[in-house]
Design a protein around this nucleic acid. Sequence first.
DNA 1: TCTCCTATGTCAGAACCCTGACATCGTTGT
DNA 2: ACAACGATGTCAGGGTTCTGACATAGGAGA
Lengths: 134, 134
Amino acid sequence: MGYRLKKASAALRGAMDKALREHDLTVPQYSCLELLDEQPGLSNADLARGTFVTRQSANVVLRGLKDAGLITQATSTDHGRSLPIHLTAAGQQRLHAARSAVYAIEQRMVRSIPARRMTALLADLDTMAEALGP
Amino acid sequence: MGYRLKKASAALRGAMDKALREHDLTVPQYSCLELLDEQPGLSNADLARGTFVTRQSANVVLRGLKDAGLITQATSTDHGRSLPIHLTAAGQQRLHAARSAVYAIEQRMVRSIPARRMTALLADLDTMAEALGP
DNA sequence: TCTCCTATGTCAGAACCCTGACATCGTTGT
DNA sequence: ACAACGATGTCAGGGTTCTGACATAGGAGA
């Protein structure tokens, strides 16, 4: 079971990595851009949770995106310590360019399995994640 | 879909990492030991394919295992360039000690989903991996 | 035989991710 | 009001993985 899960995950990672390379993006970078597009103003810790990595790892990825001018992070805040992050125009543009390539991969994956099992498959993946979780 | 797969995979990886830490092993190290126990004499490239990583990554992992005295690698071969690898007695012992912890995680994962969907779930994971593969 | 192709082992560099640790800010409970 | 706790951002160090590149061994085909 763990073997199959690892195998499928590795295949997805490889395919995404290859597709995103043409857009000068890595998988974690794309994940962050996608999250920020859906929910603008997320903080470093929010993105870490959303991409299933630690705050430290997310911090490194964000630094790369910041250096590339794809995101902007507030330097101060009026409430708490979290510094909200937003996409720049360049970030939106880059995301939309890469999105089609990623969606094509998602489609290739989804269409390979019977539609009737989709909901059960998604539910089982979530169930397994929760069974191992906190 | 990709999100769920990543989530489940991250949960598994985290749980295994935590369990194996008590045995002074990392996930890729354990994977190599398990493969070598099932099929003694595998080469570096064989292990790379079996663990879904590159030869370079496997090489680094193997160096760690060699330094720890858990495996032995032939220094020469009579056929080709591949250098067959075998577990040492210490390697077998370490593997058997860690195996129960890993199997417990596998059981927690498997029992969380209905038994009727198991075969379909495994098949779908394989199908997706192949759909993204070569 | 000689050449081309594939597979393998290896080195170098970069990116990603983790654990451990520290300081700071809000909230909570006393 | 004040101390304890949790959440956040950050630094340092180490481990894993990737791409790119090179040299070598074996087999396939002209």
